[in-house]
């Protein structure tokens, strides 16, 4: 459960409790984490920094997680995306986003599951850049 120092992670969730604590756990294991409260801010951050992994909540104000994923479709460099939701990911949504989303995590996500998933996503991101 160690992260490469270069792994830059974006955590986008309108729920401050989840956002802050998830970011804290990820920082504790070595990731550099940027937190944003909505989809619009997430897109802005993604346009400015080369994030390796983006952890996006589905339901967010301004632009939701799905809109963010679809907006990133035209981008040349995209981070590895993991979606987070308190609801089930229905089959239709999976079909729409499957080729762009690495993993779907349902809330509440146990910290160990989060760390393991992040570790795999970061490794994928590094492999893509290499």
């Amino acid at each position: 459960m160690t992260a490469e120092p270069s792994a830059l992670v974006l955590v986008a969730d309108d729920n401050a409790g989840i956002r802050d604590t998830s970011a804290a756990i990820l920082r504790a294991v070595g990731y550099t984490v940027t937190e944003v409260p909505d989809g619009q801010a997430a897109l802005e951050e993604l346009g400015q920094k080369p994030f390796g992994v983006a952890l996006l909540d589905v339901q967010m104000p301004k632009r939701d997680g799905i809109a963010v994923v679809e907006a990133l479709a035209s981008s040349t460099t995209t981070p590895v995306i993991m979606m987070l939701s308190a609801y089930d990911f229905d089959a239709e949504l999976r079909e729409r986003l499957d080729h762009r989303v690495y993993k779907y995590l349902k809330k509440p996500v146990p910290p160990t599951v989060l760390i393991d998933a992040m570790c795999e996503a970061a490794a994928l991101s590094r492999a893509a850049l290499a």
């Binding site: 729920n15 409790g17 989840i18 802050d20 604590t21 998830s22 804290a24 756990i25 308190a86 809330k107 509440p108 996500v109 146990p110 910290p111």
Partner: peptide
């Protein structure tokens, strides 16, 4: 789910 998730974290 959110507060419980935060509490677990």
């Amino acid at each position: 789910r959110n507060p419980l998730g935060a509490a677990i974290n």
